[in-house]
Amino acid sequence: MTPDCIISDATQAFIEREVAIDVASCGSELLPSTARAYGCSVAADRRRITLYLKRSEAGQLLQDVLVHDRIAAVFCLPATESALQIKGRQVSLSLADEHGVQVVARHVARFVAGVIPLGHGRLFAEAYMHITPADTVALSFVPEVVFEQTPGPGAGRALPERGAA
Rank of each mutant, 00 (worst) to 15 (best):
M1S: 15
T2I: 11
T2Q: 14
D4Y: 15
I6L: 15
I7D: 03
S8K: 12
T11W: 00
Q12H: 10
F14D: 05
F14I: 05
F14L: 10
E16F: 04
R17L: 08
E18G: 13
V19I: 08
A20C: 08
I21T: 08
D22E: 11
V23F: 01
A24E: 07
A24H: 02
C26S: 12
L30P: 00
S33Y: 02
S33W: 01
R36M: 13
Y38T: 04
Y38R: 05
G39F: 01
G39R: 01
S41F: 00
A44F: 07
I49G: 00
T50E: 06
T50L: 04
L51T: 07
Y52N: 06
R55S: 13
R55T: 12
G59H: 13
Q60A: 10
Q60R: 13
L62W: 02
Q63N: 11
V65D: 05
I71N: 00
A73R: 01
F75T: 09
C76R: 12
L77T: 08
T80W: 12
T80C: 09
A83C: 12
L84E: 00
Q85S: 06
I86M: 00
K87S: 04
G88T: 04
R89H: 15
S92W: 00
S92E: 06
L93R: 05
L93I: 01
A96M: 05
E98P: 04
H99K: 12
H99A: 11
G100E: 09
G100M: 09
Q102N: 14
Q102M: 11
Q102R: 12
V104Y: 01
R106W: 07
V108I: 11
R110G: 06
V115Q: 05
H120G: 03
H120T: 15
G121C: 06
G121H: 07
L123G: 06
F124H: 12
F124T: 14
E126P: 02
E126M: 08
A127G: 12
M129Y: 05
I131T: 06
I131Q: 01
A134M: 10
T136E: 06
T136Q: 08
T136F: 00
V137E: 00
L139V: 13
L139S: 02
F141K: 03
F141Q: 02
P143G: 07
E144Q: 14
E148T: 07
Q149M: 10
P151Y: 10
A155C: 13
G156H: 09
P160K: 15
P160T: 14
E161D: 15
E161L: 06
A164M: 09
A164V: 12
